[in-house]
Simulated scan of single mutants.
Amino acid sequence: MAHKVIFNLPKRELGREDVEFVVERDGKRFGTLLVSKGAIEWRPTNKVYRRKLRWERFDLLMRESGRPV
């Protein structure tokens, strides 16, 4: 099952405006990944909440749970 990722970059240095990555699976929106200077957030489709990780926590999570490539 391949994922399709579409993104829109702001026309300025990353600051207050997040970089938004729209992730699709099987032709339907799977969720949206928001990247900012301070954190990374995941917003699942059809959900009100977001899941947020500060960069330090994201680094730790990837080191502990990510697969080496």
Rank of each mutant, 00 (worst) to 15 (best):
G66Y: 04
M62H: 01
R50A: 10
R29I: 11
K47V: 11
P68R: 02
R57V: 13
S65T: 12
K11H: 11
N8V: 12
S65Y: 12
W42T: 02
L34Y: 10
S36H: 09
P68N: 01
N46P: 02
R16Y: 07
K11A: 12
P44D: 03
L61V: 10
F58N: 00
T32S: 05
R63D: 03
E41T: 02
R57A: 14
M62W: 07
E56Y: 10
F58D: 00
G27R: 07
E20Q: 15
L61C: 06
A39N: 08
G27M: 09
R50M: 08
G66W: 11
G31Q: 03
P10Q: 14
E56F: 09
V19N: 01
F21M: 07
L34F: 11
Y49T: 08
L53R: 08
D59P: 00
I6W: 02
R54F: 05
F7S: 10
E56P: 00
V23T: 07
R51D: 14
D18T: 08
G31M: 07
R25M: 12
K4V: 13
W42S: 00
Y49H: 14
R12A: 13
F58H: 03
R63H: 12
R54P: 06
H3Y: 15
G27D: 05
M62R: 10
R67K: 11
R57I: 15
N8A: 14
L60C: 06
V22Q: 05
P44M: 03
V5Q: 02
V5Y: 04
K4R: 13
M1I: 13
V35R: 02
R25I: 06
S65I: 11
H3T: 12
P10W: 04
E13N: 14
R67T: 09
F7Q: 09
G27K: 05
V22M: 08
T32Y: 07
E13I: 07
V35F: 04
D18I: 04
K52E: 04
K47F: 11
R63L: 11
E56T: 10
D26T: 04
W55P: 01
R25Y: 11
K52M: 05
V23M: 06
L60Q: 11
E13D: 13
R50H: 10
R54S: 15
L33P: 00
R43D: 02
R51G: 11
L9E: 07
D26C: 05
V19T: 03
L34V: 06
L9I: 02
F58V: 01
R51L: 15
K4A: 14
D18Y: 07
V22P: 00
L33S: 05
E24D: 05
R67A: 01
R16D: 12
R43C: 06
P44I: 04
V19F: 06
Y49K: 12
V23I: 15
S65F: 12
K37L: 07
N8I: 14
G15T: 03
S65M: 09
K47R: 13
V5C: 05
E24T: 12
S65H: 15
P68Y: 05
V5E: 01
K37E: 11
M1K: 10
L9V: 05
E56H: 07
R12D: 13
G38A: 11
N46H: 13
R54M: 09
G66P: 00
